[in-house]
């Protein structure tokens, strides 16, 4: 049972981490975050369900299409909910993305439907023996996919031209402009990647859970907690914090029951930030006078 809790915790944690990496990406390029990130996760699951089950498309067609549409959703958020405010130096993008999230959740309620649906996955029924516990293959796959995507992000940032361009915008946006890099476009791409990450998390988690219009709300908030806890500017920190958060939740559930999960995990978040104000893995910027 302990093994099962660890697997669940790692699975949950890596999904938090995926969402939180989205927060991280948009933050480093533009110092804004998308509070509709939770709804992006829901959009991924809902689109996947609709294309795959309702419209009966093959998985290999539905999956890329879902990710493409999710990326589009990210672009829309950046263009209409973030840039109009950010470019004017206003902080109202925060409120705008919250309102956007409510809007999208409600739109899903009326288009997708009001009842939870099951996104079947044959992987779930495939059992794998691990330390004497039968565990669904999907449950093992989720943390692996999460880690693979985080690794892919790391490799892309380090070794590809797009990654270098992104890094340039992160490290010095003004100098990046001087290189001829269209920083606005890079910010938009970061938002698109971030919603795609959320969508992947939604698709992966859907078979374990259920698909519904409200599924993103709490998940998005927890992912934000993870991003902050890890130190939002540090990708590695965010990923590790995601796993820690997921494991903590699973272990609290295991030993105290899920009624106390949120009290304890959020209290730990407050405590952690009181001790490390820039997150567990963040670093203090030197104050220039």
């Amino acid at each position: 049972m302990f093994t099962a809790a660890i697997v669940t915790g790692l699975g949950l944690g890596s999904m938090y981490a995926l969402l939180a990496l989205g927060f991280h990406l948009t933050y480093v390029v533009s110092h804004t975050v998308n509070f509709a990130q939770g709804s992006a996760m829901m959009v991924g699951a809902v689109l996947g369900y609709t294309l795959c089950i309702t419209w009966g498309l093959s998985l290999w067609l539905a999956l890329p299409l879902t990710l493409l549409l999710s990326a589009l959703y990210g672009l829309v958020i950046e263009r209409w909910l973030v840039r109009p405010f950010h470019s004017r130096g206003s902080q109202a993008w925060l409120m705008a993305t919250v309102a956007g999230g409510i809007l999208v959740d409600n739109l899903a309620l009326f288009t997708f439907g009001k009842e939870p649906r099951q996104f079947e996955s044959s992987l779930l029924n495939l059992k794998v023996e691990l330390f004497g516990n039968a565990i669904g293959a999907l449950q093992l796959l989720i943390p692996l996919v999460g880690a693979a995507i985080a690794l892919a992000l790391f490799l892309v940032r380090r070794y590809t031209r797009l990654g270098k361009v992104l890094e340039a915008c992160v490290q010095n946006p003004r100098a990046a402009m001087l290189m001829g890099i269209n920083v606005n476009r890079v910010v938009a791409i970061a938002f698109a990647i971030s919603t795609v990450f959320a969508a992947i998390a939604g698709l992966l988690i859907a078979p374990l859970f259920s698909v519904n219009a409200e599924m993103g709300m709490l998940f998005g908030l927890k992912a934000f907690a993870v991003a902050i806890l890890g130190g939002i500017a540090s990708a590695g920190g965010v990923f590790v914090a995601g796993l820690l958060f997921g494991l903590t939740e699973a272990l609290v559930t295991l030993y105290f029951g899920s009624a106390f999960t949120q009290i304890l995990t959020f209290a730990l978040v407050i405590l952690a930030l009181a001790i490390r104000p820039n997150g567990l893995f963040g670093s203090q910027a030197l104050v220039k006078v």
């Binding site: 049972m1 099962a4 809790a5 669940t8 699975g11 949950l12 988690i205 374990l208 859970f209 709490l218 998940f219 699973a250 559930t253 295991l254 029951g257 899920s258 009624a259 999960t261």
Partner: peptide
């Protein structure tokens, strides 16, 4: 034992 809307896994409670 209690369950939440957000619970992914109820195995601990059931066990």
């Amino acid at each position: 034992e209690r369950i939440q809307d957000s619970d992914l896994d109820v195995v601990p409670q059931l066990t």
